[in-house]
Every structure is written in structure tokens, then in C-alpha cells.
């Protein structure tokens, strides 16, 4: 009997989850993707791993210059 009750509860949780997800408002992929592209384009110039550093001097992990003035 306990088994039946717990199975029922489990199935109820699954169905309730699907009911919640069924009423989610969705946007077309074209719109979602356009917004992702827009976000990326607005931030690309600040993306050092993508566009590099304006000068290696501003790279905090640059190698220290191996030659020095005597």
C-alpha cells in the first residue's frame, strides 16, 4: 500500500512539473538568438580573451620582460 501511495505521489510531482512547464511563455528561437547576438556584439570589445589586449602591458599575466637595463 505504501508503495502505491509513494508511486502516486511521485507521478503527481512529475505531472505537476509538466503542468507548470506547459504554461511557460516562450519566444521564437529567432528572437532569442537575435538577443544573444546583440548582447555579444555589445560586449565583444571588452572581451580580452576574444580580442586581446590593447597592449600586452595591460595583460596582468604577461611574461616579465627577460632583458633589463644595466
Amino acid at each position: 500500500m505504501d508503495m502505491v501511495v509513494s508511486n502516486l505521489q511521485q507521478q503527481r510531482a512529475v505531472t505537476e512539473q509538466l503542468r507548470r512547464e506547459a504554461v511557460i511563455k516562450r519566444v521564437p528561437v529567432s528572437q532569442a538568438v537575435a538577443d544573444i547576438v546583440k548582447f555579444i556584439q555589445e560586449h565583444e570589445q571588452d572581451d580580452c580573451l576574444l580580442v586581446g589586449f590593447s597592449s600586452q602591458r595591460v595583460n596582468p599575466f604577461r611574461e616579465k620582460s627577460s632583458c633589463s637595463l644595466l
Partner: peptide, 21 residues
Amino acid sequence: EAEHLKIKLEDERQKLNDVTL
């Protein structure tokens, strides 16, 4: 009901899948 909802969900998502990234 769960089976029905799953099909409905997949239909809804597919309907809005109008373009690829």
C-alpha cells in the same frame, strides 16, 4: 496527462523553432 503534456510541450517548442543559431 503527463504523456499528453509532454507531446504538447514538444509541439509548442517545435512551433517556435523557426531558425538555427
